[in-house]
């Protein structure tokens, strides 16, 4: 009983902190900001979960993750435009068709970037497994190459990300303004979280991956070709980054080649806060970052980024292994 209480106590404090902006913001605005904070959190989760899992399982600090995110956004952009030219579903008034084209674009970008991830892992990262130093360099090199490839293929300038018509605007629920797209992003993010969580918890592959996060050598000794799992996790992480990229681009309505570099820092912070290798940690960390960022951005716009760093510093000093070091 006592133990349970201790476990929930930090959670209560977190809740208290997140309700505290109510003192300075009127409740309706509070709800609006909370929704956009949750949306930002869920999008961050998509990027950082892959990053965190790759670090936990492969022990690779994948600095190219941001570039994969940007690739996801660009492929999503192109496939959305191509499908839209062909079918016109993006401009259709049916929200169902809107969803179909949106999801199609995300799936295409997820698959293609997973492929890109497999190529990267096999050709560039695999030869340097075991050496942290060279891994970091190699992923930096991969990041440069991938980002430059975006500039070569799509050009160096910003592009406007198309948004399905019915995703724009907002609903009015009892006088509270609820933007549509953030709500959609929250739902999709949460579904993806549940899917990943169930895969890791309930399937044999997931169990092996969790085992590998703790002790990759023993996974090999037990007869599993760990390199195949490495590739698989890397591909899955890349696909998540890509879906995150596509959804993020739709959120901010624009894409540019360097967009990955900005997000990777957030992903890094979220992964550290949540505990490297932990999916639930990623979700909680991402929501913490997303919410605190949005609250502070509303109250004191210039301190928004500072609060994220502060969060990192506080968590690292009181719990160096992150909030959820226990995995999943």
């Amino acid at each position: 009983m006592n133990l349970k209480w201790k476990r929930w106590f930090p959670m209560l404090i977190v809740f208290a902190i997140f309700l505290s902006p109510l003192l300075g913001i009127n409740p309706k605005t509070y709800i609006t900001i909370t929704i956009s904070g949750l949306a930002m959190g869920m999008l961050l989760f998509l990027v950082s979960s892959g990053f965190s899992l790759i670090f936990g399982f492969l022990s690779v600090l994948n600095l190219a993750h941001g570039a994969l995110f940007a690739w996801g956004a660009y492929i999503g952009f192109t496939s959305f435009n191509l499908i839209n030219q062909w079918t016109g579903w993006g401009g259709s008034n049916s929200i169902f068709l809107n969803f179909i084209i949106f999801l199609l674009a995300l799936i295409i970008s997820g698959l293609l970037v997973a492929l890109l991830g497999i190529i990267t892992e096999r050709s560039v990262i695999r030869p340097v497994y075991g050496s942290h130093l060279f891994q970091i360099f190699i992923t930096v090199g991969a990041m440069i190459v991938m980002e430059e490839l975006i500039r070569i293929i799509w050009g160096p300038n910003d592009e406007v990300m198309p948004v399905p018509i019915k995703f724009m605007g907002s609903w009015d629920v009892f006088d509270v303004v609820v933007s549509k797209y953030p709500l959609i992003a929250i739902v999709i993010g949460f579904i993806l979280y549940l899917v990943i969580f169930m895969i890791l918890r309930k399937t044999k592959i997931g169990t092996i991956v969790r085992a590998g996060v703790e002790n990759p050598e023993m996974v090999q000794v037990m007869g599993h070709n760990i390199y195949r799992y490495f590739t698989g996790v890397f591909a899955a992480g890349s696909a998540l980054a890509a879906i995150g990229g596509g959804m993020w681009a739709t959120f901010v309505k624009s894409i540019h080649p360097a967009m990955g570099g900005e997000v990777i820092v957030f992903a890094l912070i979220v992964a550290i806060i949540g505990g490297l290798g932990s999916i639930t940690g990623s979700v909680v960390g991402a929501l913490l970052v997303g919410l605190s960022y949005n609250y502070v951005a509303y109250l004191i716009p210039k301190a928004a980024l500072g609060i994220t760093m502060l969060l990192l510093v506080i968590i690292l000093s009181i719990r160096p292994t992150g909030l959820f070091p226990e995995g999943t």
């Binding site: 942290h132 890094l268 912070i269 550290i272 980024l305 500072g306 994220t308 760093m309 510093v313 690292l316």
Partner: peptide, 27 residues
């Protein structure tokens, strides 16, 4: 604050601080 934990954290934390300062300097 970071090397005490794990050398790899140093890479992450330094990157985060640099990015933070970069944004700060333009804001």
């Amino acid at each position: 604050f970071s090397l005490r934990i794990r050398a790899i954290f140093f890479a992450m934390v330094t990157l985060a601080f640099m990015e933070f300062t970069f944004i700060l300097s333009s804001q």
